[in-house]
Nucleic acid binder design. Structure first.
Length: 488
RNA sequence: GGCCCCGUCGUCUAGCGGCCUAGGACUCUGGCUUCUCAAGCCAGCUACGAGGGUUCGAAUCCCUUCGGGGCUACCA
């Protein structure tokens, strides 16, 4: 029997309590890739039920980051869709409705225990070596008890009743999972102030938004029985439960789940450093997944073709900046010059190397080919090209001594003399002249001779290829700089 | 403490009972090339956490153990 597969609907549902970080993005990437691979729908939902921690700026940043990475969603903020709104803060009435319904059905109950009381009882449980968790005090309150609590002015939370037994489900990555309810205490759905908690909101939204697959971090694995409990209370038929797949963690250098405390985690930071979105995605795709067959280099398109949950690992991966850098370098080298130019310009202007005039842009474009294989991050472009634009050019402090010794002066004097009459100013004609005079006639080692010229012309011992650089700089500027170096 | 997840080079991984004296990539080391720096090419170092089984045969299956991590909130 062939059953018509339901159209896949995957969601990425972050709670933006800060900038989206590496771990979040890895999850988003897998969500996106899975949706694209299956021809399904990628839903983006903001979990902002904790209003004390989620801010509008973070939400805006999250949207921006996802766009920048090219993880375009089909439904979500700024996009709409048939199952909106996609901000949980705009769905409060929905959660209130279900919480009330659960109360009516006796699946949930009001709990009048204060935080302090709960805390004290949990401590006692720990001391007695009993599994800590809600002890069920308010599970079966009489109407007199309720009346008394209300009269005292106590606030109440709405707590889900966890029946005896166990919850079993199949995780696509980890296989069959089974949780005994003895270790899943009654949990809070609605706070004392009436606002819903994650546990209520995720479950309700995943069902209402017809989510078929939940790919999320492993930290949520043990909360799955609670979500399933909510599905049951909602009266959702088994076949409409989403399929779960819990992704392994991305760890920091100290082997702890990556967080702000260890290493750079904010994607915004990587963007500022000049990492390419496709490099970040390619690298992150390799954390917990691999296309197999010794393959590592994948484009976004290939990722959507190759990605399957079956190939996702169950073990955590450590984030390695070195490897990211290496991939970033590869991706930069793979850029077309026009693309490379578009992406480099913002770095050059914000570093005040250029203002953005047409002439400047033309020169940058001409120079990019000679630096493309020399950088690993876009933020290195300004330093590489600044010698072409420096209004008040000056030889770097550490290099002054090297050009001012007699041997160097001799080289520069000769170079200046032989370059001055040169009519055709190309890298090959410049090289021909300099080789003939400095290497052959003066008998100098190329690294010595060209080193002096390099410092004089580019101001540094390290630069793009010398002759190409000189061609780009232009004859008059080169001669001026050599003369100036002679005066040092 | 309890519940749960995980365990191949330093790191990411290939491997799903014989093709493995364990392959690739990053890192590191040495070399080649060379106008600097890169890039590129070549070579090298380094791993199946441990102990028991099952089997003719185990990195691959089972058990134990050790190690790492997560959860244990009116956070998500």
């Amino acid at each position: 029997m062939v059953d018509t597969p339901k159209k896949v609907r995957v969601r990425f549902a972050p709670s933006p309590t800060g900038d989206l970080h590496v771990g979040n993005i890895r999850t988003a990437l897998f969500d996106w890739a899975y949706a694209r691979h299956t021809g399904g729908t990628f839903v983006f939902r903001i979990e902002d039920t904790d209003t004390t921690r989620v801010t509008d700026e973070y939400i805006a940043a999250a949207i921006d980051t996802l766009r920048w990475l090219g993880l375009q969603w089909d439904e979500g903020p700024e996009m709409g869709g048939d199952y909106g709104p996609y901000l949980q803060s705009q769905r409060m009435d929905i959660y209130a409705f279900w919480a009330e319904k659960f109360l009516d059905q006796k699946d949930a109950y009001r709990c009048y225990c204060t935080p302090a009381e709960l805390e004290a009882r949990r401590d006692a449980q720990r001391a007695a070596n009993v599994a800590p968790g809600y002890d069920g005090q308010c599970r079966d309150l009489t109407s007199e008890q309720i009346a008394r609590f209300e009269a005292e002015g106590r606030q109440s939370v709405i707590r889900m009743r966890m029946p005896d037994g166990q919850t079993t489900f199949v995780d696509q990555i980890r296989g069959e999972m089974s949780f005994d309810h003895n270790f899943v205490p009654d949990f809070v759905l609605v706070r004392g102030d009436g606002s819903p908690l994650y546990t209520l909101a995720v479950a309700v939204d995943d069902i209402l938004m017809k989510i078929t697959h939940v790919l999320r971090g492993e930290d949520l694995l043990s909360s799955t029985p609670r979500q399933i409990r909510v599905y049951q209370a909602m009266g959702v038929p088994l076949e409409d439960y989403p399929t779960f797949a819990h992704l392994p963690f991305v760890m920091g250098q100290d082997n702890v789940k990556l967080s702000k405390r260890n290493g750079e985690v904010s994607i915004a930071w990587y963007r500022e450093q000049g990492y390419l979105p496709e490099a970040i995605c390619n690298y992150l795709a390799l954390l917990g997944w691999s296309p197999g067959e010794d393959r590592e280099d994948v484009t976004m398109q290939e990722l959507t073709e190759l990605f399957t949950v079956e190939r996702v690992h169950s073990s955590p991966a450590k984030f390695d900046m070195k490897k990211l850098e290496s991939i970033n370098g590869d991706k930069i080298r793979a850029l077309t010059i026009d693309d490379f130019l578009t992406r480099s310009l913002p770095f050059l202007t914000s570093a005040n190397v250029i203002t953005g005039t047409d002439d400047e842009v033309r020169l940058v474009k001409a120079a990019l080919p000679i630096i493309q294989e020399r950088i690993t991050k876009l933020n290195e472009v300004p330093a590489m090209l600044k010698f072409l634009f420096a209004k008040n050019f000056a030889v770097e402090a550490d290099s002054v001594a090297k050009v001012s010794d007699p041997a160097s002066k001799a080289v520069l004097t000769r170079a200046l003399a032989d370059l001055t009459p040169l009519t055709e100013w190309t890298h090959s004609s410049i090289e021909a002249v300099l080789r003939a005079s400095l290497i052959e006639e003066l008998g100098l080692k190329p690294r010595i001779a060209f080193g002096s010229v390099r410092i004089a012309v580019t101001g540094s011992t390290i630069s793009p290829p010398l002759f190409e650089s000189m061609e780009l700089l232009g004859k008059s500027t080169c001669l001026e700089r050599i003369s100036a170096a002679l005066a040092l």
